[in-house]
Each structure stands twice: as structure tokens, then as C-alpha cells.
């Protein structure tokens, strides 16, 4: 099962874009340039990219509070996102939403989400629409290892089975929900089995390995697209940063972060695989790195220069139409 060269190039570019976007956002938060609550996806790039490689613009995703990677992987414009994080009125959401609410409906991105497990029920709705319209589309929701303990997530999974909707539940186990370990918060020993008990197949992947995620997600998405009802992907991979910038990370074991960065890096793994198979050359990958760095740099320059919102804009976009006699 070989992956076309174009797909490989795009996958690497997207993972690298997410990595550099997040690292730059981290730096800009420290510089005081980005306000609000921001959660970084660094380390988990292969999950978003491996899944979204199987989607086109009219398939939908719905994301989480840790949403930058999912949005970039689904095609959100980097400069529009950076402007949004900076709070510019030229941002993807006009500075109304910020990091936790990045969305691009035209690209099938139904939004990052500030409410843990706010997304899965909405994704079932998108999947149901695809089923009614018989258009072969799928709806993907991303959930963390903490999010899956929320009632809304259980309800969405069960209802997707009941409705036989083409909903794909991607569970990203990064081992923690804020400061709490999955070992504590998920009561059973086997989250995959618990998820499958809802009545759909779950495909497991090493989240540090793009190829593994790509394969598992391919199976899940094909299952849903073919009209067999929902499916799941379960990918394990730690995040490199704290839950938020400044998190003291008292929950980490000694050496855990170093091990993650050293031995569980989707970008390094991708490059190692390419060196082995020769599908992409080092020069090709280096060229992508340089282009991505330039793009991110440009996005920050643009975000700093972008228009700031004005007071009148506060009450715009609450409704499409709303009239009352004043």
C-alpha cells in the first residue's frame, strides 16, 4: 500500500507547518503578543495529518480546545489563523473567537471548541446530514483521553451507532487531561474496548507515526464512507508542552518530556522512513522546512500589521438578521 509522492510531500509539509506554527505561537505568547487561553498541539501532528489526508473539503471535522493542528491539517489558512490568535479583525473569525474557536466552515472545519466534548454531538449531526443526502461524506470529531469521559461523548457515540451515521471518532490519547492521568480518569483498563463496546470498530495507531495513523484512519474512514455506520481511531502520543503555556507539569515522570521529544517525534520518524525507502530525498524535505519557516515568519509579520477590531464590531455577527424597535 504505497502512498503517492504528492501525498507524502503534502503530509510532511503539513506536519512541519503545525510544528512551526505551534512553536512560534508559544514564543509569541511568552512575548505577550497572543492573549487568552491557548493549547499547543506540538508532538501530536501525525494524528491530525494522518486523519485529514483521507478527507476532502466537503467532509467535516470538529476539533477541541487543542485545535490548531486539526485546523491546519484540514486546510485552514495559516496566516488567517495567526491573525485570529493575535486578535485581529482580519483573522479567520474576525478576532471574535481566538485560539479555542478557530473555524473555517467553507473548508469543512466546524470549529475548535472550548467545551470539552462539545464537538462529538455536532459531528453526529454533520454525519447524519451526509447519510440523509447520501453523498458519501464523513464527519470526523477529535476527542482527547479526557474528553471521552464526558456524557456528551457517550451520547454521540451511541446515537451515531443507532442512526448508522458516518461519524468517525478520533480519540487522541496524550495521557493527560490537564493535570490528570488517563490511568485515573478512565476507569477501565482498555479505552479501545470501552469505545468498541458502543458498537463500532476502532483502529489503533502509534500517534508518533504518520504512516500508522494514516493506515488506521484510512480503515475507519472507509468503513464510515461505505455506509457501515461510525468508526473510531485511537492514537497514542504525548504532547510536548504543558496543558497551557506556563503549566509546571507536576504530573510528568522524570525524563518523560525528553523521551517524548527524542524518541516519539512524528517529524523525525517521517524523515527516518523516507531515508529508508528513498521515496523523498533529504533535499526535498529540507526545502519544505525552509518554505514552512518562511511562511510562518510571514504569517507573524502579517498578523502584527493586520487591522485591529473596533468597538462597533462587538455586536456584529451575533445574528444574521435581528430587528427590534428601539
Amino acid at each position: 500500500m504505497s502512498i503517492p509522492k504528492e501525498t507524502l510531500l503534502h503530509a510532511y509539509r503539513t506536519m512541519k507547518t503545525i510544528r512551526e506554527f505551534e512553536e512560534r505561537v508559544n514564543a509569541e505568547i511568552m512575548n505577550g503578543q497572543i492573549p487568552g487561553f491557548t493549547h499547543l498541539y506540538t508532538g501530536q501532528e501525525a494524528n491530525a495529518v494522518g486523519v485529514c489526508a483521507h478527507l476532502d473539503e466537503s467532509d467535516t471535522i470538529i476539533s477541541t480546545h487543542r485545535g490548531h493542528g486539526h485546523c491546519i491539517a484540514k486546510g485552514a489558512e495559516v496566516s488567517g489563523m495567526m491573525k485570529e490568535l493575535f486578535g485581529s479583525s482580519e483573522g479567520l473569525c474576525k478576532g471574535k473567537g481566538g485560539s479555542m474557536h478557530v473555524a473555517d466552515i467553507d473548508k469543512g472545519i466546524l470549529g475548535a471548541n472550548g467545551i470539552v466534548a462539545g464537538g462529538p454531538p455536532i459531528s453526529v449531526g454533520s454525519a447524519l446530514a451526509a447519510k440523509i443526502r447520501k453523498n458519501g461524506k464523513v464527519a470526523v470529531s477529535f476527542s482527547g483521553d479526557g474528553s471521552v469521559n464526558q456524557g456528551t461523548c457517550f451520547e454521540a457515540m451511541n446515537m451515531a451507532v443507532v442512526l448508522q451515521a458516518p461519524a468517525v471518532f478520533v480519540i487522541e490519547n496524550n495521557y493527560y487531561s490537564e493535570h490528570t492521568s488517563i490511568n485515573y480518569a478512565v476507569g477501565c483498563d482498555d479505552l479501545k474496548a470501552r469505545t468498541e463496546a458502543f458498537g463500532f470498530p476502532v483502529f489503533v495507531a502509534d500517534g508518533a507515526d504518520f504512516f500508522a495513523v494514516h493506515e488506521a484512519a484510512g480503515k475507519a474512514i472507509a468503513h464510515a464512507r461505505a455506509g457501515n455506520g461510525p468508526a473510531g481511531v485511537f492514537a497514542e502520543q504525548g504532547r510536548y508542552h504543558g496543558h497551557f503555556v506556563g503549566d509546571p507539569q507536576a504530573y510528568r515522570a522524570e525524563g518523560e518530556l525528553e523521551d517524548l521529544r527524542e524518541n516519539h517525534c512524528p517529524l523525525k520518524n517521517f524523515r527516518a522512513r523516507m531515508a529508508e525507502t528513498g521515496e523523498l530525498s533529504e533535499a526535498e524535505l529540507d526545502a519544505i522546512d525552509a518554505e514552512v519557516m518562511a511562511e510562518i515568519e510571514q504569517s507573524v509579520t502579517d498578523a502584527k500589521a493586520a487591522a485591529r477590531p473596533t468597538a462597533e464590531q462587538v455586536t456584529e455577527d451575533v445574528y444574521i438578521q435581528y430587528t427590534a424597535t428601539a
Partner: peptide, 20 residues
């Protein structure tokens, strides 16, 4: 509540958080 102790189940310092 969530993380009112903090780090539960982790290899780290259980109780270190005391709420966000």
C-alpha cells in the same frame, strides 16, 4: 472537581495543583 487535587494517577506529584 477536576484537578482540585491534581496529577491523580500520574507518576508525578499528586495533589500539586489544587484547582486550575
Amino acid at each position: 472537581g477536576e484537578d482540585v487535587a491534581g496529577c491523580s494517577g500520574s507518576a508525578g506529584d499528586v495533589g500539586a495543583v489544587g484547582g486550575v
